[in-house]
Design a protein around this nucleic acid. Structure first.
Lengths: 220, 220
DNA sequence: TAGATTGTTAATCGATTAACAATC
DNA sequence: TAGATTGTTAATCGATTAACAATC
């Protein structure tokens, strides 16, 4: 299955690499303002606390070609990573659940840099419906299917309480959503051809806590 | 280095395992209400779309012993995973940056299940300082050091804009913070003995977008 | 007992790291 | 030229998966 993927889709990169590339990109863009023309793997690795060989491999995965001795031309490197990550392909998304997390995601401009544009939000609360959040309209949830279809939206962001996640996911998929970014801490069941990216802060917290507890106990 | 860690700290588990255990826990707690007494790896794997052998390995890492043929006693499994994740060790944390993401984190009760208790928030905005968010006081940022020291807080959550992240991290560390959960999309530099858990939604978005674009292109 | 599931050891797979050649 | 850095191939390491024995 995974080997087939590589052959069929030219997936010549790994998920860990894919997760690091945006971090390089955010870092490289900050360098752009500093009149830096060239950057080397070792410099990137040093600034981001990574292994320089890993950085080189990652950049290679993104099909970027550098110059021995000088490194990578900064602007070219940025553009190439952006192309690899399809940052210039604008993907419109809708968000369901305009709670604080929903607000935070609606207000975060950084997603634009990666091609994601959240065009509308949905909620049930009369306090929110009809208002704008960061220039984006909040609609009543009963308009969900209509707007997804009318605007041909294919990406849905789920920021509803756990108990509603499955129901809303089903409605999204029925209306034409092809990929779901799920922030509810429950697994949602969808058809095989629907992509689900599950975000669970508890996982990160567990890593932090465990490292923390080990560190503390070591000092006793 | 890593092998030493294993020997010195009994770190007989991997980070991927550590990230999956909270997901099992959230799932298992939902089963508790359904009068289920025993659960098998294959059942868990089936419900969470994972490999049953992987689930068995993960549970083994958490030092849980099951019964052949019947599986794991549900309540015992929950308690053992909680113990492994140190959920009963209460860690108090403060949060800096009471924007929407900060609000979302302050309002999320799920962290309590993993032992994290956010006891106070800090911001500069007069609209927020002096108010309560979800029973937690918002203090002015100039009280940061005083309160960290007075309450002996060791965990800090960073939800400030990127440009302030380093400065606030430095102040946290100087005041006694030992672990930082950083939601700003910049790397922060701290002393080696300070733990930093970096959260970057752009990484997840990149994974989602790439899968999505591959899926779409495949259909053309 | 038979069968299902855990426990444990071995094999595979893939990501990271290392080594060294190529090159500006 | 010499040296630094990329490019490319090989080695290592660790996570996942498989196989099979133990057991209720």
């Amino acid at each position: 299955m995974k080997n087939q993927d590589v052959l069929e889709n030219n997936m010549e990169y790994s998920e860990p690499t894919l997760r690091r590339l945006p971090i390089y990109l955010q870092y490289l863009k900050k360098l752009e303002n500093k009149n830096i023309m060239f950057i080397s793997c070792s410099q990137i690795a040093n600034d981001l606390n990574l292994n320089p060989i890993q950085v080189r491999k990652d950049i290679e995965s993104a099909k970027v070609i550098g110059k021995p001795k000088v490194g990578y031309e900064l602007k070219e490197l940025i553009v190439n990573i952006e192309n690899f990550l399809c940052c210039h392909i604008k993907n419109e998304a809708i968000l369901v659940g305009a709670g604080h997390l929903g607000y935070a995601l609606l207000g975060y401009h950084g997603f634009r840099d990666f091609g994601l544009d959240i065009v509308a939000a949905f909620d049930t609360s009369p306090d929110k419906v009809g208002k704008f959040i960061n220039t984006k309209s909040v609609f009543h949830i009963n308009k969900l299917e209509e707007i997804i279809k009318r605007m041909n939206i294919e990406i849905g962001i789920l920021t509803v309480p756990s108990q509603y996640a499955q129901e809303i996911a089903d409605r999204m998929v029925n209306a034409g959503i092809k990929a779901i970014w799920n922030f509810a801490p429950v697994k949602i069941n969808v058809k095989d051809n629907i992509i689900v990216q599950h975000e669970n802060l508890a996982s990160s917290l567990a890593v932090l806590s465990k490292k923390f507890d080990l560190q503390i106990n070591k000092n006793i």
